[in-house]
Write a protein that binds this DNA or RNA. Structure first.
Lengths: 178, 178
DNA sequence: TGATTCATGTAACTCGTTACATGATTAG
DNA sequence: CTAATCATGTAACGAGTTACATGAATCA
C-alpha cells in the first residue's frame, strides 16, 4: 500500500509545509529509512486536498509576490486518517542495497573494484554520521518546541549508530584487503 | 535500473539453481539488504535464457519424473555481463521502514501503540539475529567450499550486527516507556 | 551575469508486488 | 488424509522514478 500520504500527513501534524519543504525534510532527516520523489508528493498533495484531508492556506504575501509558495495545513479529518494509520499493523520493510549485493558476490579476483566500492560506501556513511550529528545537536537544543522532538531524537540516534556501524565495518573490510 | 538479473547471475556464479531455489536463497541469506518476488524472478529467467546469458540444464531425471524442476547454468556471456555490472557505479539504496516512520511521528499520546510496534520490531530483529547466527556458523564450517564464502560471511556479519543494534535500540526504547 | 537553489507540476515509463492458477511431494 | 511445502508461471495492478517544462530568487 502506498504510504506517501501518511508521511505528508505526519509532517503536517507538526507544522504547515509546502511540497518542496516536505521533500527536503524527508531527504535530510529521514534519509536512512525513507524517501519520496516529487512525482509522488505533488500529485498526492492534490488528492489529499480533494479528499479534504489537508487544505491550502492563504499565503500571506500581497499582490507583489510573484512566486506562489503553497503551504498546506492538516484538517481534523486528516488527523483522524493519520491516527488510524499509526495504530495499524506495519507492512514489512523494503530495502535494496546494490553495494551489499556486490559485496556478497565478490571474490578474491575483484578486490580492486570492491575496494573502490567500499571507499565510496564508507564515505557516504561518514557523511551521514556528520549530518545526523549536526541535526541531532540542533534538535537537542530546543527539545521542547514540539512534543515529539524526543521521538525524533531517538530515531535519529538509531540512524547515527547505524551509519557508525557501516563506517566501522567498511574500515575493517578495507583493513583486511590491504 | 532493474537489478533482478544481476542477483540471478550472481547466484548462478556459485552453483546451478532453479527459480524456486534462487528465491529461497534471497529470502534467507539476503533478507537484510535485498528482496525479490516470483513475479520478477521467473520472467527474468526467461529473458536471460532468450538472451543467452543463462541456459537450462537437462534435469537428469528419467521419464518417471513428473515434476519439471528447471535448473539454470550461467554462460560465458552471462559471466561477462555480470562482471561488467560488478565494476559499475552503484545506484543509491532504496529503503522504507514503516515502523521507523511511525516512531518518528509518535508522541506521548500514542505510547501504547508504539509499545506494541516496538515489541514486534524487536521480535523480528531477534529472529534475524538467531537466523543469521545459525547460518553464519553453518557457513563458517565449510569456509573453503566456494571461493567467495569469506565475503558472504562478512556481509552476514554486518547483518548480524545491524539486527543486534535494532534489538538493543528497541530494548532501550521499551525501557524508557515504562 | 551566470550558476545554484527554490518552487511546482506532469507524462511516460519502469519496477515490483499481489493474486491467481495449477499440481506434485512430503511430513505429521 | 490433509496441511504444508515444493515448484512454475502469468496478468493486472499499483508504486515509484526520471525526465521534462517552467520560471523566480539568491548568491558569488
Amino acid at each position: 500500500m502506498k504510504k506517501t500520504r501518511f508521511v505528508i500527513l505526519g509532517l503536517l501534524q507538526e507544522e504547515d509545509l509546502s511540497g518542496y519543504e516536505i521533500k527536503k525534510i524527508i531527504n535530510i532527516r529521514m534519509s536512512f529509512f525513507w524517501q519520496e520523489s516529487y512525482g509522488q508528493i505533488y500529485p498526492e498533495l492534490g488528492k489529499l486536498r480533494e479528499e479534504g484531508l489537508i487544505e491550502q492556506i492563504p499565503s500571506g504575501a500581497g499582490p507583489k509576490a510573484k512566486v506562489e509558495k503553497i503551504k498546506y495545513r492538516i484538517t481534523p479529518e486528516g488527523n483522524r486518517v493519520f491516527k488510524q494509520w499509526m495504530e495499524a499493523e506495519n507492512e514489512k520493510d523494503t530495502i535494496r542495497s546494490e553495494f551489499l549485493l556486490k559485496m556478497y558476490f565478490s571474490t578474491q579476483e575483484n578486490s580492486e573494484e570492491m575496494k573502490r566500492h567500499l571507499m565510496e560506501f564508507k564515505e557516504q556513511a561518514d557523511q551521514k554520521v556528520a549530518l545526523f550529528q549536526l541535526f541531532y545537536q540542533e534538535l537537542a537544543r530546543d527539545i521542547d518546541m514540539h512534543n515529539n522532538h524526543r521521538q525524533i531524537l531517538k530515531v535519529l540516534g538509531l540512524g547515527l549508530r547505524q551509519a557508525q556501524l557501516y563506517s566501522d565495518w567498511s574500515e575493517e573490510m578495507l583493513e583486511e584487503l590491504k
